[in-house]
Design a protein around this nucleic acid. Structure first.
Length: 526
RNA sequence: GGUUCCGUAGCUCAGCUGGAUAGAGCAUCUGCCUUCUAAGCAGACGGUCGCGCGUUCGAAUCGCGCCGGAAUCACCA
C-alpha cells in the first residue's frame, strides 16, 4: 500500500482505515476540471430523446400564490437539471381554463363588476378576476346562510342556492357554445393570462407549449373505447365505464360517466397520449402536489394496461403542500400568500439589507434595482428549493426569509467575492504542480468541485433540486473557509497565487452553473 | 378503516443504497475588518434522531407494532 502512487499516507482509527491521497491524484483531478468547459453540465445530446415536463397548471380564476411558486420553481429547476444532464426538455403547462371555478368569477363579475376592467381598476388581470372569485364565495355563503335560516339543510342549501345554480347553468351554456357566455369567458381568461405572464416573467419561467383544458377535455374518449374492446375497461349495467385495479392494491375507478361524459382521468389519459403524438419525447414528468399521488398511480397503471410502451417512463414529481401556520391556504377566503406580493416583499427586503450594509452607494439606480431582484428572488427560490420536495412546508408570513446563513444570497455573495477577486488579478504566470504542495483546504475544495456532476445526476434521477442546493452550500462553505485562511493574490509565490486564482475560478463556475440550475442569478458584484 | 408521505437541537432543515464523537442555518453568547466584499470566518451553547421490539459485529438509516401530523381512497378538477 505504501508503494501505491495514489496513497500518500494512512492511519487506523477505531477500526477504520483512513487513506490520504497524494497531491498527484488531486492535481490530476483539477487539471481535468480545468480542461472541461462548463464543468458538470453536459452539452445537448441530439441523439437522446426529449423529456417533457409539465408544471404550473394554474386555474384561471385567481392569481398565483406561494403554492404555485413552489410548483413553478420545482418544475423550472428540474427542467434545467434534466437539460444539464444532456437531454432536450419540453416544458409545458396545462391551463385549467374551463369549469365551475372560472364561471364563479364570471358570475360575480356580471353581478357586481359594473364593467370593471384591469385598465379601469389598475388591477393586474389575474388579481381582478381573483377578486370576483372571492366575491362569489362571499355571496354564496350569504345565500347558504339565508337558506339554512329558512329551514334548509346545510348540504342541501349548498346545492340549491340560486347563485350556484346560475353558475352551473353558465357552465352548460359555455359547453353548448352560448355566444355571450363564451365572450365573457374569453375576456376574463385573457385578463388572467396577461397577469400570469407578468408573474412568470418575474419568476424567470418559460413554457414551450401551453395546453388548454378547454381544448383537451374532450380527449380520451376514443382511447377509452379502444380499451373497452381490449378488455382493459368494463361497462357497468348503468352504462358507466370502469377499470378494476384491485389486483394492484387499488380500487375500482370510474373512467366515463353513465351519460358518456368525461371525468378528470379521461382527459388525462387522452392528453398524455396526445403529447406523445405532438412531440418526440420518451418521458413525461408531472410536477403536481402530493394530494394527487393516487390519481397518478392510477393514470400510469391505466396507460400501461392500454399497452403504451412509454407508460413506464411517466413520473410524478410529487411535492408537499405549502401551508400557513393557521392551516391551508384558501384563495376563496383570501387566506393566501400572493406570489406577486411575496416577490415585492423580497425585493424590498433585499433593498433594505443592502442599504443597512452600506453597499447601495456603489451602484447606480438601475444596477441596484437589478441586484435587489436577483437577491430577493435568490433568497425566495433557494428557500423553497433547498427543502426536499416531498416535505410539507409551513410558511410563516410574519417571519421574513433570511439573507444570512444557508440562503441564496450567501451563495450569490460567495460568487460575487470570487468574481471581484478575479477582476483584480494581474497577469497570470504558468505554474507546475511540483513547485508547491497543496494545503488541506485546497485539497478539500478540489474534491468538492469534482462532486458537482454526480450531484446533478442524483438530482436528475431523484427529481430533487434540493440535492443541488445542499451541495452548493457545502461548496460555498468550503470556499469561504479556504478564503479566510489563504491569501490568493498575495500568496507566498507567484505559482501558488496563479493556482489559487484558477481554483477560485472553478469554484465560481460551479456556483454560477449550480445557481443557474436553481433558476437563481449569480451577480458579479453585490 | 385501507393506502401513501412525514416525525432529527427552541425554530427551519441536511444526513436515510446500515459504519467513526448525529451535521448546518436561525436564535443566544465569545472572538476576528490599517491587506483579496464581515450578506463572511473561527468558536461556545443546545439532541433519549416520536416510542417499543426485532435483524445485525454495528441502526437516525432496514423490518414489524404502536403514537402524533398530513394527504388520499369523489360520477371535483
Amino acid at each position: 500500500m505504501k508503494r501505491s502512487s495514489e496513497v500518500k499516507s494512512y492511519n487506523v482509527v477505531k477500526g477504520f482505515l483512513n487513506l490520504t491521497l497524494t497531491d498527484q491524484v488531486i492535481t490530476t483531478l483539477f487539471d481535468e476540471i480545468k480542461r472541461t468547459n462548463n464543468f458538470g453540465l453536459k452539452d445537448l445530446d441530439p441523439l437522446l430523446p426529449s423529456a417533457m415536463i409539465e408544471y404550473s397548471s394554474p386555474n384561471t380564476n385567481k392569481p398565483l400564490h406561494l403554492g404555485h411558486i413552489r410548483n413553478n420553481l420545482l418544475g423550472d429547476s428540474i427542467s434545467r437539471i434534466v437539460k444539464a444532464s444532456g437531454r432536450n426538455v419540453i416544458q409545458v403547462q396545462i391551463i385549467n381554463d374551463r369549469g365551475v371555478h372560472i364561471c364563479k368569477s364570471m358570475w360575480a363579475w356580471k353581478k357586481f363588476g359594473d364593467g370593471e376592467t384591469p385598465e379601469s381598476s389598475g388591477l393586474k388581470g389575474d388579481h381582478l378576476v381573483g377578486k370576483y372569485y372571492v366575491l362569489f364565495d362571499k355571496e354564496y355563503k350569504r345565500q347558504i346562510n339565508k337558506s339554512v335560516l329558512n329551514g334548509t339543510e346545510q348540504e342541501e342549501a349548498k346545492k340549491t342556492v340560486p347563485c350556484i345554480l346560475e353558475v352551473q347553468k353558465m357552465l352548460l351554456d359555455w359547453e353548448s357554445g352560448d355566444k355571450e357566455v363564451v365572450q365573457l369567458w374569453t375576456k376574463m381568461n385573457t385578463w388572467v393570462y396577461s397577469g400570469f405572464e407578468k408573474t412568470y416573467e418575474r419568476l424567470g419561467i418559460v413554457f414551450d407549449k401551453n395546453y388548454y383544458e378547454s381544448e383537451t377535455y374532450i380527449l380520451g374518449k376514443k382511447d377509452i373505447r379502444q380499451g373497452l374492446q381490449n378488455g382493459v375497461f368494463y361497462r357497468k349495467p348503468d352504462n358507466s365505464v370502469w377499470i378494476d385495479l384491485s389486483a394492484e392494491g387499488l380500487d375500482e375507478k370510474i373512467i366515463l360517466r353513465k351519460d358518456g361524459s368525461s371525468v378528470y382521468m379521461t382527459q388525462d389519459i387522452g392528453t398524455a397520449i396526445q403529447r406523445f403524438k405532438d412531440f418526440e419525447i420518451d418521458s413525461l414528468t408531472y410536477v403536481v402536489g402530493n394530494e394527487q399521488d393516487y390519481h397518478f398511480r392510477v393514470l400510469f397503471l391505466i396507460l400501461e394496461k392500454l399497452g403504451y410502451s412509454w407508460a413506464r417512463k411517466l413520473s410524478h414529481l410529487s411535492y408537499g403542500m405549502v401551508d400557513l401556520p393557521t392551516g391551508k391556504m384558501k384563495s376563496r377566503e383570501g387566506k393566501v400568500v400572493d406570489a406577486d406580493d411575496l416577490m415585492d416583499e423580497m425585493e424590498l427586503a433585499a433593498k433594505k439589507m443592502s442599504i443597512e450594509l452600506g453597499k447601495s452607494q456603489a451602484f447606480s439606480n438601475s444596477e441596484s434595482e437589478m441586484l435587489n431582484k436577483a437577491l430577493g428572488h435568490g433568497a425566495l427560490k433557494y428557500f423553497i428549493l433547498k427543502v426536499d420536495p416531498k416535505k410539507r412546508m409551513i410558511f410563516n408570513p410574519e417571519e421574513s426569509i433570511d439573507f444570512n446563513g444557508n440562503t441564496g444570497p450567501f451563495l450569490q455573495y460567495t460568487h460575487a467575492r470570487i468574481s471581484s477577486l478575479i477582476n483584480k488579478k494581474g497577469s497570470q504566470v504558468d505554474y507546475d504542480w511540483d513547485q508547491f504542495e497543496l494545503t488541506e483546504k485546497e485539497r478539500a475544495l478540489v474534491i468538492l468541485i469534482a462532486k458537482f456532476p454526480k450531484n446533478i445526476q442524483a438530482a436528475a434521477t431523484g427529481l430533487n433540486p434540493s440535492i443541488i442546493a445542499t451541495y452548493l452550500y457545502e461548496l460555498a462553505k468550503g470556499f469561504n473557509s479556504f478564503y479566510q485562511q489563504h491569501s490568493v493574490l498575495n500568496a507566498e509565490t507567484a505559482s501558488i497565487a496563479a493556482f489559487r486564482v484558477d481554483l477560485c475560478k472553478e469554484v465560481a463556475n460551479v456556483l454560477n452553473s449550480g445557481l443557474n440550475i436553481l433558476g437563481i442569478n449569480a451577480p458579479e458584484r453585490m
